[in-house]
């Protein structure tokens, strides 16, 4: 039923987000793929909350959304700062601390 189907969908969405983080070089798209993965996790939380009749997972989703909002704000701030410095939002251009 729904509680065994939705975690499978969430797993697919998570993997798509992970592939996106690996293959895209545009920093904004990488941030969007991270949002995709966070949402897949939220969906898993919600379906387990439904299955276990427990609302604690709803609180966890609330906190995940809080962290996602903070992450998006700071991440986009970093993208803007890097773009201003280098005229590029390519993650491969920011490799000063790589090794």
């Amino acid at each position: 039923m729904i509680t065994s189907f939705l975690p499978l969908v969430a797993a697919v969405l998570f993997a798509i987000g992970a592939i996106g983080v690996l293959i895209r070089r545009n920093a904004i798209v990488v941030l969007m793929c991270i949002e995709l993965m966070l949402n897949a996790v939220n969906l898993t939380f919600a379906s387990y909350a439904y299955e276990l009749r427990s609302m604690s997972a709803h609180v966890f989703i609330f906190f995940v959304m809080t962290v996602a909002a903070a992450e998006a704000a700071v991440g986009l701030g970093i993208v803007i700062a890097v773009f201003r410095k280098r005229q590029s939002a390519d993650v491969d251009d920011v490799n000063l601390m790589r090794w």
């Binding site: 809080t66 700071v74 701030g77």
Partner: peptide
Amino acid sequence: ASVLLVVAMIGAVVLA
């Protein structure tokens, strides 16, 4: 979480 949001807000302003 509220502290986290304040820190993120300050960080975003400083970074941008």
